[in-house]
C-alpha cells in the first residue's frame, strides 16, 4: 500500500511536510485571528519560540546520534536558580557559572552513557533527578525573584536592539552556530554517521565515544543557556521554571522531521518544528484551550510525528 509516507516519494514528502504544516497552521490561525499576522505578534511569536528552540537545538544533536536527553528541563530550571542566586555577587559571571554547570552535567551524562554503557535515556533521566533535587535544595524549594539592581545584567535578554528583542537575537545566533556545526563541520557529519550506522563509523576510525560525549555536553550546555534566558525573561529563577518544556522540546525536534532513531535531521528542521509547536500553542490559546491541557496535544503530536518520520520498512524492530 503506497501512502504518502511509504510510497516512492516518501522521502520528499517527509522533508517538506513540516514546512508545509507550519505555513498551513499560520494561515489557519491568521484567518481566525488576523492580528496574528501583524509584525508585533510575529515578533512575540519569535520571542516565545526562542527558549524552546534553544532547548530543541541542543537535543537535536543527541537525537541525531540515536540517543535522547531527558535532563533538559531540569538543567534549564537549575540554571535559572543558579543565576537568580548568584547574579547579585557574580554579575555576568553568574551566566558563565550556570552554563558551565550545564557543560559539566552533559559531560557526566555522556561519560556515564559511553563508559558505563548505560542507555542515554537512563543516564539523562538519572542526571535529571540529580539536577532537579539540586535546584530544589539550593533554592530552598521556592521561586527567587531577581532584584531590581540585578535586572540590569539581563538587558541582553530583555532589551531590544534596533527594535528586535534580544531573546530573538540570542535564538538566531544559536541557530546559525548550531546549523554550521551540524551541516558544515566534521562533528556534525560524525554525529549523523554514528546515528545512521555506528558500526561503520567506528570501523572508519571515527572516535565514536568522544563525539557522543560532545553531543551530550552541547545539549546540556544549550539547556543551561535556555534556563539563563528564561530566568531573564521571567525575572526569576525557580526549580520548576522549565518544568513543562521537555515534551514540547522533543516534540519540536521530531515534528521538524528529525528521526528519533538517529541519522537523519537538521537544525533548520528543528527551527521549523519549534515554530510549529509555538503556533499550535498560540492557536490553542486563541481557541481557548486550557493552558494545562496543552501537553495533551503535544503528547499526541509527538507520537503522530514519530510515526510519520520513521520509515518502518527500513526498521523492522522498534523497542
Amino acid at each position: 500500500m503506497a501512502t504518502p509516507f511509504t510510497g516512492p516519494n516518501a522521502d520528499r514528502t517527509r522533508r517538506w511536510l513540516p514546512l508545509a504544516t507550519l505555513v498551513i497552521l499560520m494561515v489557519v490561525v491568521g484567518v481566525m485571528q488576523p492580528t496574528f499576522l501583524y509584525p508585533a505578534t510575529l515578533l512575540q511569536l519569535a520571542s516565545d519560540t526562542a527558549v524552546l528552540f534553544i532547548l530543541a537545538a541542543g537535543v537535536t544533536f543527541v537525537i541525531m546520534l540515536g540517543g535522547i536527553d531527558l535532563s533538559l528541563q531540569s538543567m534549564a530550571s537549575l540554571a535559572s536558580v543558579v543565576v537568580a542566586l548568584t547574579v547579585a555577587q557574580l554579575g555576568y559571571g553568574s551566566f558563565v557559572l550556570a552554563i558551565g554547570i550545564g557543560a559539566v552535567a552533559g559531560l557526566l551524562s555522556g561519560l556515564a552513557h559511553v563508559k558505563l554503557k548505560v542507555p542515554s535515556f537512563i543516564t539523562t533521566l538519572a542526571i535529571s533527578g540529580v539536577l532537579f533535587s539540586t535546584a530544589l535544595v539550593i533554592s530552598g524549594e521556592r521561586s527567587i525573584t531577581l532584584g531590581e539592581a540585578d535586572r540590569n545584567y539581563q538587558a541582553w535578554i530583555t532589551g531590544s536592539f534596533f527594535g528586535i528583542p534580544g531573546v530573538i537575537i540570542i535564538g538566531f545566533v544559536v541557530f546559525v552556530l548550531a546549523s554550521v556545526l551540524q551541516s558544515r563541520t566534521p562533528f556534525g557529519r560524525y554525529i549523523a554517521a554514528i546515528g545512521a550506522g555506528e558500526p561503520a563509523a567506528y570501523a572508519s576510525g571515527v572516535r565514536v565515544s568522544r563525539y557522543k560525549v560532545y553531543a551530550f555536553i552541547l545539549s546540556s550546555t544549550l539547556a543551561a543557556l535556555a534556563g539563563v534566558v528564561l530566568a531573564g525573561r521571567l525575572a526569576s529563577g525557580s526549580p520548576t521554571l522549565a518544568a513543562e518544556m521537555l515534551l514540547p522540546s522533543i516534540a519540536a525536534v521530531v515534528v521538524g522531521g528529525t528521526a528519533i532513531t538517529g541519522g537523519v535531521g537538521s537544525i533548520w528542521q528543528t527551527l521549523v518544528g519549534s515554530l510549529i509547536i509555538s503556533v499550535v500553542r498560540i492557536g490553542m490559546t486563541f481557541l481557548g484551550v486550557n493552558i494545562f491541557a496543552q501537553n495533551i496535544v503535544f503528547g499526541t503530536v509527538l507520537i503522530v510525528a514519530v510515526a510519520i518520520t520513521i520509515d518502518r520498512s527500513k526498521i523492522p524492530i522498534v523497542k
Partner: peptide, 24 residues
C-alpha cells in the same frame, strides 16, 4: 552493509568519512 558503509549517508559522506579532518 553494517561496518563498511553508513547506508543512510550519501556516497560523498561515505567516501570522506575516514579522512574528513584533512578536508577542513
Amino acid at each position: 552493509r553494517l561496518e563498511g558503509l553508513v547506508l543512510f549517508l550519501s556516497v560523498a559522506a561515505n567516501v570522506t568519512l575516514a579522512d574528513l579532518q584533512r578536508l577542513t
